[in-house]
Nucleic acid binder design. Sequence first.
DNA 1: TGCGTCTATAACCTGTTGGAATGGATGTCG
DNA 2: CGACATCCATTCCAACAGGTTATAGACGCA
Lengths: 314, 314
Amino acid sequence: MDVDTRLVRYFVAVADEGSLTRAAQRLFVSQPALTKQIRHLETLLGVRLFTRSRLGMTLTEAGRALADRAPALLADCDRVLRETKSAASRAARVLRVGFLASAANEATQDIIAMFGRLRPGWRVDMRQAAWSNPTAGLADGEVDAALLRLPFPGQDAFRVEVLLTEPRWVALPSAHPLATRDVIPFRDLWDEPFVAAPDETGWWRDYWLATDDRDGRPPRIGATTDHPDDWLQAIANGYGIALAPQSSARFYARPGVTYRPVTGVSPSQVGIAWPPEAGANPVVQDFVRCCLEIRAEPLPPADPDRADGETLDE
Amino acid sequence: MDVDTRLVRYFVAVADEGSLTRAAQRLFVSQPALTKQIRHLETLLGVRLFTRSRLGMTLTEAGRALADRAPALLADCDRVLRETKSAASRAARVLRVGFLASAANEATQDIIAMFGRLRPGWRVDMRQAAWSNPTAGLADGEVDAALLRLPFPGQDAFRVEVLLTEPRWVALPSAHPLATRDVIPFRDLWDEPFVAAPDETGWWRDYWLATDDRDGRPPRIGATTDHPDDWLQAIANGYGIALAPQSSARFYARPGVTYRPVTGVSPSQVGIAWPPEAGANPVVQDFVRCCLEIRAEPLPPADPDRADGETLDE
DNA sequence: TGCGTCTATAACCTGTTGGAATGGATGTCG
DNA sequence: CGACATCCATTCCAACAGGTTATAGACGCA
């Protein structure tokens, strides 16, 4: 009795949504494909999992039994695969650290340097992730730890420590009328077109559109990008504006793009996250400890440009 | 990151056997197919799981990590699917009981009758299994409990109670020279061709060939069958002889087939088995209780033919 | 009556799986 | 030393499974 975990994930999506159509778009497959797969799962088990109606798909008792147990099963599955990949990198003495562009900053090199002293012989492999991968590879075991903007989707399944908190600013085309203002209230930006992250990032996309701070009215989308370079390009080209952490003003400075402080949006946080099972991995623990130490007492700046910007968290 | 459980099972087999070739025949696939699948799993994970050599396949550290965790994962998977199927039959008020032909006997009807009084409204669905399915569907959740000959492959994963112990006899073509003897020492049968269960039953096949009682010399196979009817037919046709529980002499009497007691082979046991998770299912518990009650005090025989044969266990 | 919202079905394309045959490297035994 | 056994890898081919688009059918609602 072999069941592809994909089938189970499909099942969970349909059970969650109560509808093939909606589940299909959440999974980025066509509705007929989902129909077939769910039927396939049912014949595989010899059990009817849903009762169909015009209103959608309702779980049968058997379906309910599976829906109750499947998420834990899938999580176990993911954990085992993560542990396997982690064992491989451990054997090679490589610590894989994922990061979203906006989550790395000046402190990162200090962290790596400190880790290097703590664990000579180990190599840190920093992997930048696209925004469509909001856990930077943590979820599928591609990395042992990740520097992320908080919150991130699925955060509850991981261990997280906050490293810093900083205000969100806005990035505008330099020619934009508001670019001359010193500080911009967010509500003045409600009707501006935004450069957004791809749909499939869900939560992440909404966070950077600040949908919570718009008083319910929907954002206008001027462009969608998946990478910092495209993002800057889109803003410079005037396709739209975007919120960004304050530190982007230094890291992603570019002619044609101007950054300005914004009032009326909550600040953003950077955190270090690692999978729960890495609690048993002393190397990951050491890396996390480096992050926390650097947070507590940043190394003395080698360069005066270094010390501006972040507000330490605590 | 979706991995078919089939891939994991393949991996476990190769890890166990330390060889693609041997694992392939255990899995009843060709060796090239296995080669491809293992490579596929490796590229899927982005991790080398084995180091290849002329001596076979050796686990890498990552492979060891996976091999340590995979069996539990697969067991969880099977359990969840079993529970799903079980929920379905429970909702329909059906108790599914599997049995191997030779494990059902006169007591079975008494058990069902007793269960019927204990659980009115419930239906017992008795499902005879082929010998190629030595757990009678217990392993893949097709049944809630099973009447089996002991021991059976994978027995440790289930709860088992012994119901009766009876000697093994031999079934011969009536025209066979030995058919005139009252009792036959097993060693007189060592060189006879046997009608055996299919290869893939492994343990089960060996048990009924009594390979343990042959002093190391290999059995001769005259024919292979997967079902009682074929089995009787093969014996009647003279393709070979076979060991069988004493009670077969009554249940599988047929012109052209003669049963005789045999000395020098261990007796056979019948047991009731159920999955550990069914401990939470009172209906399964009731059925097991019926089995044990009938074992302890068989109902008074309605027919004089009924009481011969079995030796009660304890 | 026409529209929107569901699921089911049909026709089609492609990638993957599995089988048989074969190759190549390496030991082993007479 | 040569024949043979034992591994894994490769190639070629047939079958199938999974995906897509387009469309049908059922139903409630304005």
